[in-house]
Design a protein around this nucleic acid. Structure first.
Ligand code: NAD
Ligand code: NAD
Lengths: 251, 251
DNA sequence: TACCGCTTGTGAACGCATGCACAAAGTCGG
DNA sequence: CCGACTTTGTGCATGCGTTCACAAGCGGTA
């Protein structure tokens, strides 16, 4: 497959257009890894590293080298055969694909245990995600600054979100309040939601939700210990451990 | 592929053995969803609901009904055709598969913003994950109870973890300390790690790591807004959206 | 008992993601 | 300028996960 450039059918520059077209086709799983590569690459850049091979980068990112190259190929061919990748170049292209060329203003709703931690966290602004608004229903919290930002009352959510052009809403309220908060964020024009409440949110098609469910994470870990314990038990009983589909190996 | 029953090669009861064998074959993605079904079912049980159909449950869990049934089929056939599932029965079987029949003691390392939130969170003990140990390197924190548990110094990690039979270690330290903390947890016999630090951890094969990376989550959201914006732009410019590999059209 | 309508459980097809293996494309030393 | 060596980019095969569609099975009803 030859990448055809210079067809000049669009009004944007050819390079940009190519990137935008590609973005459509990137697998979700690859996007998540690109974000990891970006972090690793940023670290390398700060340490003065200017070039990196797929082998090195894949090691640092904890993935297979072939997968890394495939992932990078989704965003274009920016490596030099026989040499590797230029760190700066890769950083800027990944940032462009991930939409990090502009800042994404974040609002946190529910300034309890978790909300406080998020508001105080310095890692978001540094990565292009400034926290610009905090909301809570508790009158005692309203007005008090957390991490430098004063807490607004939840009823002001629409005006404040519009005014500060919030693009990502973080839900850190108790579960019963989550859906209602979500609805209010959506009607305030927020199209991206990060949800910490253990609740399945209903949203319109044009809104993207990602959930972080710590209890689920722990249960997955629990499953793996249980499985391991079972395997150990089976082996000690004399099970030979051949797969369920029992293919015989070795011709 | 026929599931073979009654071979009677193990010493455990047939039902248990069947479950254990199945656990091996459950796709990772399905395990995560089973945890969600469990939460929804627990909620239903508390509300007095005793029976549920795959359609209802799938709606509540935010998934496709066919997928839900497939997921449940991985753990066995506990439904009644023409009727649905008994809530209690499903709950107990999912709990068994996920290894929730016993408690999993949790240790949190790094009692800063996030560590405090985790230690104070009431949702874990209630779901079979009691937090039994807290660690930090900061001498000012050591001895102070957080969420009812006194903070231990990180140097005591091995003894305390062994003594309290910690099975899950949560890393909430700054990134530079994460790998060293991880190593210490591993040498203390902890086989499951939940990592909040934006770092790729190196661990032996017998240790399971899951990471929660909020910056990555936000970047994925950012990608989606960017993609949507691009699509809108393409349409408004009149681009017909043919892919990069697109055949050239021309009458 | 025989039939009917409903819901489960699952075989089979499909589509996406992963990993392999190698040609293409570059660098570097002579 | 050439040939040896290195590393990328990707076609292809394989495996996993999702979705569809329907036979099997159960409860209710006449
Ligand atoms: N703290 C953790 O470590 C942790 C871990 C996993 C999940 N979670 C989840 O995160 C969420 C928050 O946890 P938390 O420990 O911070 O709880 P919390 O009770 O400490 O804080 C909740 C905050 O939300 C506010 N609130 C309640 N209703 C609201 C509404 N309608 N609008 C705006 N604000 C509202 C409350 O006033 C309170 O300040 C919960 O859903 C919890 O299940 C928390
Ligand atoms: N706070 C958040 O909302 C948030 C969000 C995303 C990611 N994170 C990540 O979670 C981690 C913790 O964040 P935080 O905001 O709680 O940081 P923090 O600085 O508030 O707390 C870190 C704690 O770890 C302790 N610590 C440092 N070195 C240690 C060591 N070797 N052993 C034991 N304890 C040690 C410190 O004393 C401090 O109490 C960081 O890696 C951060 O990137 C936090």
């Amino acid at each position: 497959m030859v990448s055809q450039r210079g067809e000049g059918e669009t009004t944007t520059t050819p390079a940009e257009a190519a990137d935008k077209e590609r973005a459509r086709a990137i697998p979700e799983a690859a996007v998540a890894r690109l974000a990891v590569y970006l972090r690793v690459l940023s670290g390398m850049a700060e340490s003065g590293v200017t070039a990196v091979s797929s082998e090195e980068l894949s090691q640092a990112a904890g993935v297979n080298a072939a997968k890394l190259r495939k992932d990078l190929s989704y965003i274009g061919s920016y490596g030099t055969r026989g040499v590797g990748y230029d760190v700066e170049v890769l950083v800027s292209h990944i940032e462009r694909i991930l939409g990090l060329t502009r800042n994404h203003s974040v609002a946190v709703v529910g300034i309890g245990n978790l909300g406080h931690a998020l508001a105080n966290y310095g890692g978001f602004p540094g990565r292009g995600f400034p926290v610009t608004a905090l909301f809570d229903v508790d009158a005692d919290l309203v007005g008090i600054p957390v991490g430098g930002i004063p807490v607004n009352h939840i009823d002001e959510i629409t005006e404040v979100c519009l005014e500060r052009e919030v693009s990502i809403g973080v839900i850190a309220t108790p579960p019963p309040a989550a859906q209602s908060v979500c609805d209010r964020l959506v009607s305030a024009g927020v199209q991206c939601i990060l949800n910490f409440a253990p609740v399945v949110l209903q949203v319109p098609d044009n809104v993207e939700v990602r959930k972080v469910d710590l209890a689920v994470e722990m249960q997955i870990l629990s499953f793996h210990v249980a499985r391991r314990a079972d395997e150990a038990a089976s082996v000690s009983v004399g099970n030979n451990g051949l797969g369920v589909d029992g293919m015989v190996i070795r011709p």
